[in-house]
Design a protein around this nucleic acid. Structure first.
Lengths: 224, 224
DNA sequence: GAACGAAGATAGTATTACTATCATTAGAGA
DNA sequence: TCTCTAATGATAGTAATACTATCTTCGTTC
């Protein structure tokens, strides 16, 4: 018997649910690969269609446009991360250890989770680093936000915020610190690899140093 | 007599120096306004040309493409900020006060500086918040970085990093903390306005709260 | 075997992101 | 004053992008 991991996605993210057909799953799988390979700007539905062996129109039946597809896979990623955070912290009592675990999950490269056949999480992680903030840095944020497209990100942020408050109930900025950790886990990784002079991890490009930086940042801030 | 503020720009940013002609200045002035109005994705050289009363080809004589124009105005912004940081900190002895000043400069809305007739800094600040990271979150980062297109950002980061070290010479992550402050000064502002549940500044949308958050973050981290 | 929905095949449109060419004009230097 | 040049204007054209529409086919279900 195989274990399957299903993530319930907001219906406004797609026109037709990609999880419920072979073509849909191919769109996600190859979409992730193509965005990673060429970058989101150069990514088009036409190229994706050619990759899969279907037509442009076929893809438009699933997603309104490529921006929606990016939001979809990002939302999937955040949901999956929140699930991982839950799994890896629910047997931990000490909130400090919990928070350390979370930082590690955020800042460390993931391996492909075999229970999700049509998503390669390690590539997805790279996409989120480079393209993730493009999901909301648009003129349509508020509109998209009303449709709850960013809910998984917000849920994760709230979850981490609550762990921060467990550590120190008097800390005044749990949510801002939470979004700072999330963003910086990715940005410092990007900087380390492509603009190393913006970081202190230049030489050996070791993700564990990002973890140490974030731990230092977080725990000195929330210290009672 | 009028004071003029001239910022020396990297020549690789443009094909023809926009500061040296009326048309060039118009491209910058109206470009900033149009990007702010419609967002970078919807911004085209054709629309800009119509706005100015010139032709598409005319703009292509100055900038290779719209991404280069975005890098140009971003580089201008970072240079200008570094200049402001220098002006506002060079009479301050105490590095802690210096750093506080820097945080305020980063996180507080600016007013239009009348010495730069063809740049509206308050609009530019908004653009940097929403579009700034798109300058480097591309597949061409390394290439663009080799041409030193991000030098002004890196200079500012280094400058702030050195002030951090003045505060505490033993602090291990001056550059990463510096890039964190810079990015978060903008991201927390964006979140406050468009995705408030990712912050703790939801109710009254007061920039001073971002300053307080960043001060708390920075000074607890570097405390000896 | 009728009915339906998903997918394939094909076509078409407006816009985007350029490149090329040629004419006009304003200013600099001889 | 003449001339040369560089900047701009005017116009055209192309390949790619971002869609929308329509019609057919195929497999399933009732």
């Amino acid at each position: 018997m195989e274990l399957q991991l299903q993530i319930k996605m907001n219906e406004k993210l797609f026109l037709r649910n990609p999880e419920q057909s072979e073509l849909g799953k191919k769109i996600i799988l190859h979409g992730i690969q193509l965005i990673n390979k060429n970058g989101f700007e150069a990514f088009t539905f036409k190229k994706l269609a050619q990759d899969i062996g279907t037509t442009e129109a076929g893809i438009y039946r699933y997603f309104e446009n490529k921006h929606r597809l990016l939001i979809y896979i990002s939302a999937w990623y955040w949901s999956w991360l929140e699930y991982r955070v839950a799994v890896h912290t629910n047997n931990i009592k000490d909130p400090v250890l919990k928070l350390k675990k979370v930082i590690k999950l955020l800042a460390t490269a993931v391996e492909d989770d075999n229970r999700t056949s049509y998503v390669d999480e390690s590539i997805l992680h790279q996409i989120i680093i480079t393209e993730g903030s493009k999901t909301y840095l648009t003129k349509k944020v508020s509109e998209d936000n009303k449709d709850h497209l960013f809910q998984p990100y917000k849920n994760l942020c709230a979850k981490i915020g609550s762990i921060i408050l467990e550590c120190n109930p008097k800390y005044k900025y749990p949510k801002s610190l939470s979004s700072t950790i999330i963003e910086m886990a990715h940005f410092q990784n990007f900087f380390m690899n492509y603009l190393p002079s913006l970081t202190d991890f230049g030489k050996n490009k070791d993700e564990r140093k990002i973890v140490l930086f974030l731990e230092n940042l977080v725990f000195s801030s929330i210290k009672k």
